[in-house]
């Protein structure tokens, strides 16, 4: 006979696994319900526009400032390495490709999860805790089509927009460091970039990534809020989980998407 206590780690593992799977299923169910109740988000577009304001416009400052610094640092670090091989003109390519392919979508998604995702989770969680969602239900208004779906679509719209802004501002930051500060030729900076950045394979793929990240981050934030226990502690834990889960999912998805895009 094995002692019961020896089995405890296994039981804990099993419990954690079942819970994860259950949450995955519940999340997928909410995603599906959101999709089929999306009609109102577009029929009454101002509902969605309002959320684009809160998720997108309110995230502009953090996105623009981060992008600027990321671009500048990329240029500094890149120059440091490239000049050893006498190819400092390739600095434009390095900055642009790094931003457009990877850093733009990923860093935007991480910042989005921290800025907008947490706000969404906390808002939905508090709406639930203060019975606002139940009140809506009792008024024969579906919270999914009135509260969840507009926020979802707003996130899906805002993320790619933030991503292209991130890339553009980042490249601008890189330009400011490379050209006026270091003295790389401006013509070489832009022409090398243009010769090596492909519209479809680099830029469009980056945008596709950010759309996928937008879906993932917003849905995770919404689900965590919707699923949060209606207490102060429950909401705060859910907010933390939003950041952790979103970040991990974004990085994982990035790997999957990149490997798909490279093999194609």
């Amino acid at each position: 006979m094995i002692k019961r206590s020896r089995l405890r780690p296994l039981r804990t593992l099993g419990h954690a696994f079942i819970k994860r799977i259950w949450r995955l299923g519940a999340g997928a169910r909410l995603f599906w319900l959101t999709l089929i109740s999306s009609g109102e988000s577009f029929r009454r577009l101002h509902l969605t526009i309002r959320e684009v304001y809160f998720t997108g416009v309110m995230s502009l400052i953090i996105i623009v400032v981060s992008a600027f610094f990321v671009g500048m640092v990329l240029a500094l670090q890149g120059y440091n390495t490239l000049q050893r091989y006498g190819s400092s003109e390739a600095i434009g390519v390095l900055v642009a490709l790094a931003l457009v392919r990877e850093l733009g979508p990923v860093v935007t998604a991480l910042l989005f999860a921290g800025r907008a995702g947490t706000a969404i989770t906390a808002e939905i969680g508090l709406m639930k805790a203060t019975e606002q969602l139940s009140a809506m239900e009792m008024m024969a208004v579906s919270p999914i089509s009135r509260v969840i779906a507009p926020r979802f679509w707003a996130g899906v719209i805002a993320m790619p927009v933030l991503n292209v802004l991130f890339c553009m501002v980042g490249i601008l930051g890189g330009y400011l460091v490379a050209v006026p500060l270091i003295g790389v030729d401006a013509g070489a900076f832009w022409s090398q970039m243009q010769a090596n950045v492909d519209w479809r394979l680099d830029i469009l793929n980056g945008v596709i990534k950010s759309v996928v990240f937008g879906i993932a981050c917003t849905m995770i934030a919404l689900f965590e809020g919707y699923d949060a226990p209606p207490t102060a502690e429950g909401v705060s834990r859910a907010t933390t989980r939003t950041v952790v889960t979103s970040s991990l999912v974004v990085l994982g998805l990035d790997f999957v998407l990149t490997s798909f895009m490279i093999s194609l």
């Binding site: 709406m127 203060t130 606002q132 009140a135 239900e137 009792m138």
Partner: peptide, 16 residues
């Protein structure tokens, strides 16, 4: 439910 109106314990007003 459209025939019902409900007053929640703490009002449950939409805070936004």
């Amino acid at each position: 439910r459209r025939k019902m109106g409900m007053l929640f314990q703490h009002g449950a007003l939409f805070t936004d």
